[in-house]
Amino acid sequence: MSTQTTSSASAPIESIARARRWPQEVNILLVLLGIALLFELLGWFIQGQSFLFNYNRLQIMILQVAVIGIIAVGVTQVIITGGIDLSSGSVVAATAMIAASFAQSSDWARVIYPSLTDLPFFVPLAVGLGVGLIAGITNGALIAYTKIPPFIATLGMMVSARGISRWYTNGNPVSGFTDDFVLIGDGLGRWMPVVIFLAVALIFHIALRYTRYGKFTYAIGANQQAARVSGINIERHLVKVYAIAGLLAGLAGVVAIARIKTAQAGMGMMYELDAIAAAVIGGVSLAGGQGKITGAVIGALILGVMISGFTFLRVDAYYQDIIKGGIIVAAVVVDQYRQRRRKKS
């Protein structure tokens, strides 16, 4: 047999010709552009005006995307590990209520903590991030160490965090924020939430691509057993990932109240599902191990364009939801189809 016949010491990789694969995110971007152009056309035909070239509409659309987008960046990482986070919407509400109580101005009539008014903006911001972090760590620890399914752990958090947001002020809204704090949602000519969203997306895009944290995140989602045998501490890493998801939900809560200038216990309803939908539409596989932040960002934009487009065309809100549901399901069907085709090849 071949003992040592052809051992050219260190040959380069033996190549097999193969066409370069088209990055999946490009397809999703094309879908986004296609949808935008469709609305543009429909706009001229039906409304007699442009859909895209309208500064106000564009700004409102992107601002709506920003909050969901920040959550989606965290949820994407959770989904890449093969998990799910249902608690984000409730965590948004809980952090919003608690952070709001530290963001009030002394000239507001009904303040929660009269001795804690006019605090600098970073105090409520830190409080919000802290609350989100605690929720995330709780999720992660439950999942990693008690081995309960992520669905159940985060379902529990979803219910509890919503309860906390109601209990905190007995269901009363909190308003009267300092000018300082409001800038988090209103600064830079109202573009601040978008800047925060893009910064967060960039940071975690880099983290997933270029750091060990990212490599391990994909590894756990791709094959947890293999990851364990490769010496990865699965438990510790899962806590990190869920903690980040919680932290980002907290940030989203702070940004949301700074923008709308009031915090309510009922806010953030269904945000978790919008964030998951954004990730899934963006090609993040629910099976784990695959997906990119860029995909989730585009996915969030697709959702935003659709909602904004339907509103622009005066499509009834009920129809909007019906169509949105269909799109989410279609995205997963496409994902499944892709998985199956890959297995066959």
Binding site: A222, A226, A227, V229
Partner: peptide, 8 residues
């Protein structure tokens, strides 16, 4: 099962 990360 315990070796490859098939999607990577």
């Amino acid at each position: 099962d315990t070796g490859c990360f098939l999607s990577l």
